[in-house]
Design a protein around this nucleic acid. Structure first.
Length: 829
DNA sequence: TGTTGGTCGGTTTTT
DNA sequence: CCGACCAACA
């Protein structure tokens, strides 16, 4: 069957687009001093081009320093994207390079899309001429399609998603005769990912890593995985970077071609690059001595929040070493936030060591600007309720007479489980919200199934797609048949679809299975033939109809079925934007997200991680408690570095706010089903008092607790409401360790609306302070309580102990019903 | 082949 | 405590 890839143009077959306004093509060989001089002259003599006006001096320097390496340290809200896009426009307008000679790399597809749009606006018109603007991965695919054979692949290779990868690894683990329960495929997929992020091939992985998995067979398993990918004519995401790196290293002539091609290289979000990306970049950016390395990296070390998935902040920290003579430009003038927000964020991030050091400032100071407000709530339910009320207040315009749009507000959480409470609350309030992130369109089961059909039509060797849909819908081709097919194919080193075609010629299978398989094979033959001459939309619909896939969902009576059918329609609709089925598949494998509905006015709820790069008038930051934020695991696993990354996350959160930033913490949170008392986040102590207000009693204290010790005014009555809470060993140590860093905080902390419920002496909840673990001490000491004891709990009131397991008590409360709580939080009455 | 019960884990996510 | 996922069943 023909499997040509003619519809994907290779770069050197594209006609060179003429520069839009540039008078002459770039001079070959030298760095174009003549043009530079002319551009400078043009700038000095005439009015600067429109696109340069309105840039501040630093931005302008970043745009106009075209020769040699440049590092732009762009703080939050300092116009980073503007610099990047204007710089590209400037390169084009001064005729220094054709659009196809600029390599511009982003991390997300969204960023790439936005950059394209904005360059289009600046240069006036479409930017189709920028074929090398994209994510590391999409550019990687392009390179790899061009040189696939050098990586042992054909140019029509498939890109596997995580789901495929896990299934494949599982097969390999089982094939090795290993227990896939003991050695989970998911975990190994994670290990491979980590290795590939570091640019490590099977031969390169540390011996320790290799031994740590699959009875010491880690390395073999990784090698087997790579081999299997090759036979499948497939690669995973990591390979999109690693294969090009290997190709460049082994073929200096090819690398040289690209050196000649890419006159200018730009990298966005440089602080998020991992080692593999760094290696890739260095290969492309390096130049013989004397030839300027026109590489411009833009980033912010203070916003590096992806260390846990392999990003190396170090890449940005050592830029000047890597590219000698680099010009380093700091953008510190912030156009987004009020002085209070910048002041709070700046003081917080100053607690990190090992930063390049920037201080954001603004001179648009307004005495009416609200300080950052810290609120205390009793528990997460009250937190959600109070945030909901604040949102409604803003919406109505109570406080300042202005009615605020929900679109201008966001709730940024540390962990996604926090979202639920807000969603619940907003549903009851009838408040529109949208969750950003979460499960994505192309990850839905029905979409993946449909895509598997399309993949198999385009790429008959895609065994993973074959196995996914061969019995979906049910065709009576169960495990036994599939395994037989699998073994048959592996033994002869042919694709399973081919194996199926062979087998139906024999009488190996039972008549029923044979008939079913025959039908499927026929169908695929039919569809593959139509691939070249039938419009892809029509063919796709046909495939889903004829395969019985849509019928399967039509006959499904479950509640989700109609939604799934709707998604399938949406899938077909989204294909219209593409020229061919292959083009569509490529897009989807790289761009996993679908557009969000922006029309509705709604509050956004998302994690801090997905908020990077966004901005909102008002930002709510709930859950600032030790253990949650900074997250306990970040501290346990990352120590000081982990803490600093958490702090950067907090910095990212605060700097998302343009005008209003409300931070919340609660005293009680249910973690793994147990009610736990929590301490306010240390980050709160790191905020400067002069930019922060503490909201006093701004919530309705409903709930339990009745009578005695109830949550209300009384909690402020105590001479020192922190006496109990802050008597844990960890806290004491933190007090001793206090440096000048905390001196400018809120001093005595007493006006602070908090009370803890730690009655018992340092309960079972010691924490980590400054990266030092004070163990999550669950030391099993015999309980001081017995079943039947009458006890009091500050949240739930009085009750009787029904059961005791270690330090966990099950208590029948008079008013709150049965709850499980840690014994440190109750006292005998 | 679909249901059920039992176990395990429970931060962040792109491509 | 709750949900996802997997193995054992009817």
């Amino acid at each position: 069957m023909s499997n040509s890839f003619d519809d994907i143009p290779f770069f050197d077959e594209e006609p060179e687009p003429a520069p839009r306004k540039a008078p002459a093509p770039p001079p070959a060989g030298n760095a174009g001093l003549g043009i530079a001089a002319r551009a400078m002259a043009a700038r000095d003599q005439h009015r600067a081009p429109d696109y340069l006006s309105g840039l501040n001096p630093e931005q302008r320097e970043a745009v106009e320093t075209l020769d040699g390496p440049v590092l732009v340290l762009a703080g939050a809200g300092t116009g980073k994207t503007r610099v990047l896009t204007t710089r590209i426009a400037h390169i084009l307008e001064t005729g220094r390079a054709f659009p196809s000679q600029i390599l511009a790399v982003t991390f997300t597809n969204k960023a790439a899309r936005e950059m394209k749009e904005r360059i289009g606006v600046l240069v006036g018109g479409a930017v189709e001429g920028m074929p090398w603007l994209g994510t590391f991965h999409s550019i990687g695919v392009k390179l790899l399609r061009r040189h696939a054979e050098l990586a042992g692949l054909r140019s029509d290779f498939t890109i596997l998603d995580t789901d495929d990868v896990i299934r494949l690894i599982k097969q390999l683990i089982q094939a090795e005769g290993l227990d896939d329960k003991r050695w989970p495929a998911r975990q190994f997929a994670g290990m491979i990912d980590t290795w590939k992020n570091k640019g490590l091939l099977p031969a390169d992985i540390p011996e320790g890593d290799a031994r740590a998995f699959a009875n010491g067979k880690g390395r073999e398993l990784y090698a087997a995985y790579q081999a299997r990918l090759k036979t499948l004519n497939a690669c995973d995401f990591g390979d999109l970077l690693l294969h090009p790196i290997a190709i460049f290293r082994q073929n200096p002539d090819i690398l040289k071609d690209y050196h000649n091609r890419f006159r200018y290289i730009l990298v966005d979000e440089y602080q998020d690059t991992n080692t593999a990306q760094y290696m890739w970049l260095r290969l492309l950016a390096q130049r013989p001595k004397g030839v300027p390395q026109n590489v411009c990296c833009v980033g912010d070390d203070d916003q590096s929040i992806y260390g846990w998935r392999g990003a190396e902040v170090d890449n940005i920290l050592r830029f000047e070493k890597d590219f000698p003579g680099a010009r380093v430009i700091k953008l510190e003038r912030n156009y987004r936030s009020t002085e209070h927000i910048l002041g709070a964020a700046g003081r917080l991030i100053a607690h990190n060591e090992g930063r390049l050091g920037k201080t954001l400032f603004t001179d648009r100071v307004n005495p009416d600007d609200e300080k950052v407000i810290v609120h205390a709530a009793w528990d997460s339910e009250e937190e959600a309720r109070a945030v909901g009320e604040e949102i409604e207040r803003l919406q109505r315009g109570d406080s300042d007479g202005k009615k605020h749009a929900l679109n201008d507000m966001a709730i940024l959480v540390r962990a996604s489980f926090q979202m639920r409470e807000f969603e619940d609350r907003f549903v009851t309030l009838g408040l529109n919200y949208r969750v950003i992130g979460g499960p994505r369109f192309y990850e839905r089961m029905e979409i993946r199934d449909a895509m598997a059909y399309f993949r198999l039509v385009c790429q008959p060797a895609d065994d993973l797609a074959f196995e996914r849909i061969i019995n979906t819908p049910k065709r009576g081709l169960g495990d036994t048949t599939v395994r037989y097919l699998h073994d048959y194919a592996r033994a002869r080193d042919i694709p399973m679809l081919q194996a199926a075609a062979d087998i139906i010629e024999t009488d190996e299978l039972k008549p029923k299975a044979r008939k079913a398989l025959f039908d499927v094979v026929q169908s695929f033959r039919n569809w593959s033939q139509k691939l070249e001459n039938t419009p892809h939309i029509e063919l796709s619909e046909q495939i889903l109809e004829e395969s019985g896939y849509t019928d399967m969902w039509k006959n499904d009576k479950s509640a989700e079925a109609p939604g799934r059918l709707e998604n399938l329609k949406e899938l077909i609709r989204s294909m219209e934007a593409f020229e061919s089925m292959r083009g569509f598949l490529e897009h989807v494998s790289l761009v996993m997200d679908a557009e969000q509905n922006e029309d509705m006015d709604a509050v956004s709820i998302m994690t801090l991680h997905s908020a990077k790069g966004l901005e909102f008038e008002t930002v709510f930051l709930p859950g600032w408690e030790e253990g949650l934020f900074p997250h306990q695991r970040a501290l346990d696993e990352g120590g000081r570095a982990g803490l600093e990354e958490e702090r950067r996350l907090a910095y990212v959160g605060i700097t998302r706010a343009k005008r209003r930033c409300h931070i919340w913490f609660v005293s009680n949170r249910r973690i793994h089903g147990l009610w736990q008392s929590t301490m306010p986040s240390r980050f709160l102590d790191e905020l400067p008092q002069m930019h922060v207000d503490v909201a006093v009693a701004d919530t309705n204290y409903g709930g339990y607790g009745g009578g005695r010790g109830g949550y209300g005014q009384s909690r402020f009555d105590k001479a020192d409401p922190f006496a109990n809470t802050y008597s844990t060993p960890g806290w004491k140590r933190a007090q001793q360790n206090k440096t000048d860093a905390t001196r400018d905080n809120w001093g005595t902390r007493s006006g602070h609306a908090v009370e803890r419920i730690g009655y018992g002496e340092s309960g079972p909840r010691s924490r980590t302070i400054e990266g030092e673990l004070v163990a999550k001490s669950t030391t099993e000491t015999p309980s001081q309580f017995s079943v039947g004891d009458r006890v009091f709990h500050i949240k739930f009131g009085n009750g009787n102990i029904a059961a005791i397991e270690g330090n966990k008590l099950t208590i029948d409360f008079d008013r709150a019903g049965q709850k499980r709580v840690l014994e440190g939080f109750v006292e005998r009455v």
